[in-house]
Design a protein around this nucleic acid. Structure first.
Lengths: 355, 355
DNA sequence: TGTTAGCACTCGTGTAGTGAGAGTGCTAAC
DNA sequence: GTTAGCACTCTCACTACACGAGTGCTAACA
């Protein structure tokens, strides 16, 4: 039983050496030799001593050798341990904070998510990923119908978080403009503050119950709302900066590059991965073990949910080699989650209050 | 003077051999030997004879050798000649036509462009590129203002082609809902059928001229429209399927992959390249000579404009190794341009008529 | 005169061998 | 418990070499 990742047996010195190996590996992407640890660490130990410790760490499952007579490389267990108890989280530099805040503040609501993923990628120098909210889960702020030519009507839905979506619907008969205005007002007044899903359910019930005594306006309203609020799409996955990873030695092989891009193209799987990562709120790290994607590439994902108040709207994070700078990535992702949430809340001044 | 791409001196036999070399190279991506041409062509000539002709073709500038004692590779001049006068355009298969038509017909207007670029990439097995219309150049169909909380107003702009864009604006004072409805109606009735640019100009003139005698509603309308119709963004470049090229031998080198992705990230340059490609309408081919992008990668671009009636709205095309199947790509791009244009025209039944 | 067979020549590729260097594991001494 | 020393292993870069593919040229042929 060589794999016993029970870190109680690690002495402080063991931990210090492991930490050193991890940090050096993160920096250089090359197997770390006992000699280099001996030189750079504060411990003042010889390479031979380090070697003994490293042999132990390998036995515990924290290090591994690509081949005999090569240096050591951290395992997933090592990264987990590092993140849990060895990492010294670095604060996001003030310059970067300002940069993020300015950019998110000045972005239009429809560019907000794109800006966020770009910022993530730019500052992390990894791939930035943002999963945008599912419209069906958002809270309605206002509905509006715009009369176009003939029987075409454009339904515009605004969510409390400031997202706008629209859908073209074709009605059975031409509806005069004033009628559309009345319907918009009626729906907005009666249904604002509920999620689209709730509204749809309520409308269906109304239709079933009161079929007989409905007036014309109400009937029309229900028909339009049923079609217009059926925004099953809406959720998007924005991936930014994939090309920055091309310089990494992990992607020296074209086959791997290809697998990575194929993975990015499979949005559904990406969303699943992201969502698995954010159970429980706060920043979570997924180090290539569960998901096939991260494990086959030796990649990791640092992700966090964002939203308004306690309502989670989506997920964002960075994706890159397991050998990433967690000390920088984790606070960065945290900060971006917070800032995006704040930007959403402010983008509608008091947009989350339900009237 | 070895470079004399004056193809009048080519005998039919020369042309046949050149054609053969090009087609074989497109297929295999490997220098073509005299022997293989001798075998596969209908001419019944020996390799030695072919060799003589190929030496001539090299002198005229149509072929080149990566090194002595390798087969020959077509030059740009060869591809140009091939496209101009040696190609037998293959019709787009009925199955693909149906596939494209169904997909474009069923796409929502906001997904239409994305679907188009995906179709391009999928059917061409190259990178599909679509430049979406500049909103400022589109013809207004309707404007609508949606009242949100407090002084926030959402301006929704619908173009005759069916594109919807919106912008959040903050007014100086709260405007009652009925007032917004009146303003929407006024603007839609008075300005539909003009481009946003024209409308902006006209509004500015109105403001300057009639400052004194404007009523409150008109003043408000102008203020709102000035802000709301200022959609300088809007133009996007959709790039789909970059990963399908990763298998191509042209991208065996990671550096080149990187350069390609960097190029895709530089949207402005992409747009410029696409636009240069479509002067004069119809399908145009850009074979890596003018643009640095295509020349350094040995890539080509096949592009065509699309639009409604005679109004060009945007550009679409495929991007891939110069060694691409022009016989298939050119009709495919042509077909997609036509079909997208038709889909746009139909998406608003009679949407292009100005009332 | 155009075509072809033959042949020498060139160049890329794959394979095998070699030596240097980096790194380890182990042992014995401190 | 720590360290120096040493044998061992494995990778990597370099060289040499043979092979094969392809060409260009020349001379013979129709």
């Amino acid at each position: 039983m060589p794999e016993t990742p029970d870190f109680s047996k690690l002495t402080p010195r063991d931990r210090e050496i492991l930490r050193d190996v991890i940090l050096t590996y993160i920096l250089n992407a090359e197997p770390v030799s006992s000699r280099s640890v001996s030189k750079h660490s504060q411990l003042g130990l010889s390479a031979a001593t380090i070697r003994n410790v490293m042999a132990d760490l390998e036995e515990w499952g924290y290090l591994m050798q690509p081949h005999t007579s090569a240096g050591r490389v951290p395992t997933r267990a090592a990264y987990h341990l590092f993140i849990e108890s060895m990492m010294q989280v670095r604060k996001v530099p003030a310059k970067e904070r300002r940069y993020v805040e300015e950019n998110l503040r000045n972005a239009d609501s429809d560019q907000l998510m794109g800006t966020a993923s770009h910022l993530l990628s730019e500052l992390s120098r990894q791939v930035g990923i943002v999963v945008t909210p599912l419209v069906g889960e958002t809270v309605l702020k206002a509905v509006d119908f715009v009369s176009l030519s003939g029987r075409k009507v454009l339904c515009v839905v605004v969510s409390a978080a400031g997202f706008v979506d629209n859908k073209l619907i074709e009605t059975e008969e031409e509806i005069p403009r004033e009628e559309l205005v009345r319907i918009s007002n009626y729906l907005t007044e009666n249904f604002a503050g509920q999620t689209l899903r709730e509204i749809r359910d309520r409308l269906l019930k109304m239709m079933a119950e009161e079929r007989a005594q409905m007036d014309r306006m109400l009937a029309l309203a229900i028909t339009l709302a049923r079609e217009g609020l059926d925004l099953n799409g809406g959720q998007e996955v924005l991936v930014d900066g994939a090309s920055v990873l091309l310089g990494q030695p992990e992607l020296a092989d074209i086959q791997r590059v290809r697998r990575m891009f194929d993975a990015f193209a499979d949005k559904a799987r990406l969303v699943k991965m992201l969502n698995r990562c954010i159970q429980g709120g706060g920043v979570r790290v997924l180090i290539g073990d569960d998901s096939e994607l991260t494990s086959e590439l030796d990649f990791s994902l640092v992700a966090t949910p964002y939203g308004i108040g306690d309502q989670t709207l989506g997920t964002l994070g960075v994706f890159g080699p397991s050998r990433m700078e967690y000390e920088r990535m984790i606070p960065l992702v945290h900060f971006l989650g917070e800032t995006l949430s704040r930007a959403l809340a402010e983008s509608f001044s008091g947009g989350s209050e339900k009237k």
